[in-house]
Structure formats: C-alpha cells, structure tokens
C-alpha cells in the first residue's frame, strides 16, 4: 500500500521525468512530421532531379523542383557569414577574455548581448537601407541585394553566439597554463596564440558550430537582403535565395498536400539533415579533442 508521501514522491519523480524527455520527444515529433509531409515527394520526383536539379519553378507547368540553387544559396551565405564572423568573433572573444581591462570588458559584454537581442527583421531592415545601397554603389552592381550583403548581416547575427561562447571557453583556460607559458618567456601574444587558443579550441569550435547553426537557420534577414533569385549563384555579388527563405516565402501560397507543399517540406528535411550533420561533426570533433 502506497503511503501519501510515497505517492507524492512518485508523482514528482514522474513529472520531472516527463519534462526531461519532452525535449527529445519534440525533436522526434518534428522529425516525424517533416518526414510525413515531405518524404512522399522523394517517390514522386527522382532524388537526383530534386537534389541536383538546377531549376526551381514550383508553379510553372510542368513544375520543376530542383533545389540545388537553394542549397547553394544557403551554402554561399553561410560560408560568407562564417568567414566574416569567425575571425572577428574569436578575436573579439580573446580581447574580452584576456586583454580588455575590467571596465571595458563589462561594456563590451553588454554590447554584444545587446546585439543578440536585436530581432532579425530589424537587422534585415537596417541591412536593406544601409548595406544594400552601399554594396550596390561600391561594386557598381545593378542591385545590392546579394549574397555578400546577406553574409555580412548574418555575420553580425552569428557574432554574439560566437563571441559569448568562445569567451567562456577562453576564460575557462586554467591560469596555470598562462603562467606556465609566460614563465617560459612567451610574449602575451605567443601565450594567447599557442596555449590559450589551443586549450580553448574545443569550446571555440563549439562556438563556431553554433554560429553556423544560427546562420543556416536564419530566415527573415536573408529573405530581406539577398534578393531571393532562385538561380545558382555565380559569385558573392549575385542575388541568391536560401532554403529557409524559400520555405518562408512560399508556404503561404501552397495548397496543403500539393506537390509544391511537399517540396517545401522536402527542403525542410534537407535543411534538418544539414544542421544535424553539422552538429554531429562538431560533436565528434569535440570528443576527439577531449580525448
């Protein structure tokens, strides 16, 4: 016979358990839903045509669902944003954690957190009215809505993630390492470069991966400033359309259950797979370094 106290313990334990597994359950549910809605498309359209097709004409007759331009669009913007944000972000983290005097450190940390608080639509808007005309004039382009503009603005959005996580990793490097390096006659930069960055590399890698995750999943800002032309980008100065922007822009116009609707879910599956692989690779790499 269960006592009242025993019952209470039992209920609390189960409630905590449910909350604990909820996150996992949600991921599985989302994945199942994505699969249910989009997977049947893979039977209707050959995989090669879908993934390697160079034309995305979902409402022409006959429609063509080649998502390669979209994948490349996402890739170009992500690579651009990463190349811009990672060096600046890591250097900024290094400055905040190791170089800046206490007063400046607090101001900078607060500033970076503010950057994270700016809604992406505002970033997109600011990019649209400032960066886009600037890029247009600078390169003499017909339009400033390019992959480059998107990369720069997304770089700003990835920065807070990269800086704050990398800063934590750098600040967590044991003082013993720093003193050891200095005692051996290392300059401050040699100490930072060869010992501190080295010791913090797993954390920095995690920061970079989370930054990439943020960029690849970002929708609103890229939709506003990359031009949304679903063609294979020829350079950073060409307009591109990302997978996320495509889903967001077109979902409202599709009929539930139609081929177009399923194609958008298929894009969702591809996007999910890419982020999954990015995280997996980061995880494997992190464990490798830890050992």
């Amino acid at each position: 016979m269960m006592t009242l106290r025993g019952l209470r313990e039992f209920c609390i334990e189960k409630a905590i358990f449910l909350c604990g597994v909820a996150a996992v359950v949600f991921v599985l549910l989302i994945f199942t839903f994505l699969m249910r809605e989009g997977f049947s498309l893979f039977f209707k359209i050959p995989m090669t045509e879908l993934l390697a097709g160079t034309h995305w004409y979902p409402i022409s007759d006959p429609p063509r669902f080649g998502i390669l331009p979209l994948i490349l669009g996402s890739l170009v913007v992500t690579v651009g944003a990463t190349v811009l944000a990672v060096p600046v972000g890591v250097a900024s983290a290094l400055y905040i954690a190791e170089v800046a005097p206490a007063g400046i450190r607090d101001v900078m940390k607060a500033g970076i957190e503010m950057l994270a608080a700016i809604p992406s639509v505002v970033i997109g808007f600011i990019g649209m009215v400032t960066l886009v005309p600037f890029v247009k004039r600078l390169f003499g382009l017909p339009t400033g809505l390019t992959a480059l503009s998107g990369s720069i603005m997304l770089g700003f959005m990835a920065m807070p993630t990269i800086v704050s996580i990398a800063e934590d990793a750098i600040a967590a490097v044991p003082t013993e390492y720093k003193q050891g390096a200095l005692a051996l006659g290392a300059t401050r930069w040699q100490m930072l470069y060869r010992v501190v960055l080295h010791a913090a590399s797993p954390g920095i890698l995690a920061a970079v991966m989370l930054g990439i995750g943020r960029v690849i999943g970002e929708t609103m800002a890229v939709m506003m400033i990359t031009g949304n032309a679903a063609v294979i980008p020829e350079s950073f100065l060409a307009p591109v359309r990302t997978m996320t922007a495509t889903i967001a822009a077109e979902m409202g116009e599709t009929v539930k259950g139609s081929l177009h609707y399923q194609a958008l879910f298929a894009i969702g599956i591809v996007l999910f797979s890419i982020t999954f692989v990015v995280n997996l690779v980061a995880d494997i790499f992190l464990h490798k370094i830890k050992r």
Binding site: E176, Y177, A181, L182, A183, L184, G185, H198, A199
Partner: peptide, 18 residues
C-alpha cells in the same frame, strides 16, 4: 620576456599544455 627566457619555472600544480 628575455629575462624569463633565462629562467625555468615549475609550478605547484603540474601544467603541461594540452
């Protein structure tokens, strides 16, 4: 920096670099 290069130091807690 030059001065420290002329000395070696071993700490209380062993601190080999990773």
């Amino acid at each position: 920096i030059e001065l420290r290069k002329r000395m070696g130091m071993v700490f209380q807690k062993s601190n080999p670099f990773p």
